Simulated scan of single mutants.
Amino acid sequence: MNHLRRTLPLRHAPLVGEALDSWLEFLAARLSCHFEDVLRAMSLPTNDPVLTHAVPPRWTVLTTAEELASIAAVSGIAEDGLAAMTLQRFDGHALVIHSEHRRVERQVLWGRSGSRFCPACLADSAGRWQLTWRLGWSFACTRHQTLLADYCPHCRTTPRLRAHPRRQTPRPGLCASSAPGERRGPRCHHPLTDTPVTGLQAEGDAVRTQRLIDGLLAAPHERVHWPLYGPEGAP
Rank of each mutant, 00 (worst) to 15 (best):
I77K: 11
A78E: 15
E79Y: 14
E79F: 07
G81F: 02
G81E: 15
M85S: 08
L87Y: 00
R89D: 05
R89G: 05
F90C: 05
G92I: 03
H93V: 11
A94Y: 00
A94D: 02
V96K: 03
V96P: 00
H98C: 10
S99C: 06
H101M: 04
R103E: 15
V104N: 09
E105I: 11
R106P: 00
R106V: 13
R106Q: 06
Q107Y: 05
Q107E: 03
V108L: 10
W110V: 01
S113P: 01
G114E: 04
S115H: 12
C118D: 03
C121W: 14
C121M: 13
S125W: 11
A126T: 08
W129I: 08
W129R: 04
Q130E: 07
L131P: 00
R134Q: 12
R134N: 11
R134D: 06
L135T: 04
S138M: 12
A140G: 05
C141R: 06
C141K: 08
T142E: 08
R143I: 15
T146Q: 15
T146K: 10
L147Y: 15
L147N: 07
A149R: 13
A149F: 12
C152W: 06
C152T: 07
H154K: 10
H154L: 14
C155W: 02
T157N: 14
T157S: 14
T157Y: 11
T158K: 05
T158I: 09
P159I: 01
P159R: 04
L161M: 12
A163R: 01
R166H: 06
R167N: 14
R167T: 15
P170H: 07
R171P: 00
R171M: 08
P172V: 02
G173Q: 08
G173R: 07
G173S: 10
G181C: 06
G181P: 10
R183S: 12
P186T: 13
P186Y: 07
P191T: 02
